[in-house]
Design a protein around this nucleic acid. Structure first.
Lengths: 318, 318
DNA sequence: GTATTTATACTCAATTTGAGCATAATTATA
DNA sequence: TATAATTATGCTCAAATTGAGTATAAATAC
């Protein structure tokens, strides 16, 4: 077993942050040196002799490449399939990719080395943002393209139906990865085209910026995980500034879920959850000033670690 | 960078199955060749030249070592910390361990090569089974031992409180891994003793069979994941025979959660969820015969993929 | 000082949950 | 053969939660 390919591990991190209405992800922009004009996540090899754990390794690469202070950090998934992140210069090598999700708040946004940028997450997944109603790109390009693909791959019918729903209400916001994987397999992403999965650049009608290597896949995993997790663990507070108003909290929840929430009910839920301590202070901006709250940490909350069981608002018109 | 340690990947699988009241996990028993008398999970190296994906690799090792037909398969976590699964014979090597959860039903239990056995999962985590009330071992050995440890490591106080709760009702059944990790760090597992974390065999008062390598850690991850997941995805049906009664379904849910459920409410919930099709048939055993149901697959269910939002029964006596 | 904006309070019906009582259809046993 | 024990299923009912408002308060903008 001497000529088995040597294994390398890449650690890539999706760092999320919120600003106003936007859920942002920290990218490393391409240096425009011809080869690779797509942005990427901060990433680097896992070096067991220098990093006792992968999380230590990840913090090293993040510090070096984007200099952001991380709050909550969690491992997402390990992708090992051949060909999704192959290094063509080292064919006798197999690189496995471990994706992480990290959360930061605005105060920790840092600026750090090199060209880098916070990008709205929905610029990579326009079809995931339903805050202003059903995204137009679904009916304009994605669904028609998938229908075409399904005539060639009818066995995928059920999977597509589950991921993209049939009519309204059938959309499960957590299936971010499933949807991205389907688009990838259907050849509707630039990634699949560049990796030679299909001869035609079918992706060109579909909006959404593509990323290097398998980073958009990792990012899809991150968004899906975040959407699921914040419903049952209070991770949302890692995205908030130390003090915040209920509206800011709600905007953050909406940005994560890609969905509009009912204001009064959100407030009621959050108050009952006992997560918040009120600072006496007020924030004034436009209309009536809003009270500033802060997160009440572990020891005093009664439901130790549940999340925000949000209920979305479906303004009645149909 | 020529003398960086070479990386290997182990794939280990926790295969779960249900029989009656018991949640079982498929072990490979030790061949009793002195070195290792502890059981282990089926596992083997990931060989990228032979297995296009890790899941293919896992199925290969499972087939070879225990011959079980797998239903649902899902990746759990990738553990990479030094020293938790070190191979002392190859010091210039670093092995990363990827854990998987797989579900099987009784009809798929197979027998396959070598000495192997289904073992009750709570034999490894006796403190996780609350079906007959609070496990005695908690107050008899675990909590006192943790208290002793906390005097030496007071910074862990908050973590311990969160994982083990203070009084009743504070126990979050999903924190299986967190609890195991605390016991490991506190030196209260045979694994930590054998890995040289502490000179005294403190674990000897604590019940629970230990496993080889980091397999009990993977198993803890598996149980925690299963407990969480079946609440929002219908994975429980992968553990059921093709036809089953509501009581059997409830027993399975109880075995997973390690908690007793309220029968009538469980029935009501499961009927409303629309997951079941009634076969006309009945199963008779002791009392009144029970109707046999089967799982209604995807296309016809109205809530496509929610899980069983169980409500536990707390018989009032306090 | 009136319109606009935003925050917060309160209401109310519909639904869901938690707990238990009642009844039905069997097998085990006196 | 009657009666007890056992298991399944049906139904009730109050409490709590949810979904969708209306109403009012406290600012700024014009």
């Amino acid at each position: 077993m001497t000529d088995a390919p040597e294994i390398f591990i890449d650690i890539s991190t999706a760092i999320m942050c919120v600003a106003g209405d936007d859920l942002l992800c920290r990218m490393v922009e391409p240096q425009d040196d011809a080869n690779n004009h797509r942005p990427r996540l901060p990433f680097g090899p896992f070096m067991p002799d220098q990093h006792r754990t992968m999380e230590i390794g990840l913090r090293h690469w993040v510090r070096e490449q984007v200099g952001v202070d991380l709050g909550h950090v969690e491992q997402l998934y390990t992708f090992a399939d051949q060909g999704r992140q192959r290094d063509f210069e080292a064919p006798d090598t197999h690189t496995v990719s471990v994706g992480y999700l990290a959360l930061a708040n605005q105060t920790a946004r840092g600026s750090g080395g090199g060209a880098s940028l916070w990008r709205n997450i929905y610029s990579f997944f326009p079809w995931e943002d339903w805050r202003d109603g059903r995204p137009a790109c679904l009916d304009e390009s994605i669904i028609p393209a998938l229908d075409t693909w399904l005539t060639a791959a009818p066995e995928a019918q059920e999977r597509v139906r589950l991921a993209f729903g049939r009519d309204r209400d059938q959309w499960d916001e957590e299936f971010v990865l499933e949807r991205y994987e389907i688009l990838y397999e259907a050849g509707l992403t630039e990634e699949s085209y560049l990796e030679g999965r299909n001869p035609e650049p079918l992706y060109q009608g579909i909006p959404g910026t593509s990323l290097q290597l398998d980073h958009r896949r990792i990012l899809a995993t991150a968004l899906g995980r975040l959407r699921g997790k914040f419903k049952y663990r209070p991770v949302i507070f890692d995205l908030m500034a130390p003090q915040f108003t209920l509206t800011q909290l709600q905007k953050t929840a909406e940005a994560i879920l890609g969905v509009r929430l009912h204001k009064q009910n959100f407030r009621r839920m959050v108050e009952k959850s006992n997560f918040l301590d009120s600072t006496g202070k007020m924030e004034k901006s436009r209309g009536r000033p809003a009270e500033l709250f802060r997160f009440r940490h572990g020891d005093r909350a009664d439901r130790p670690l549940s999340g925000l069981r949000v209920s979305s608002s479906r303004p009645r018109r149909g």
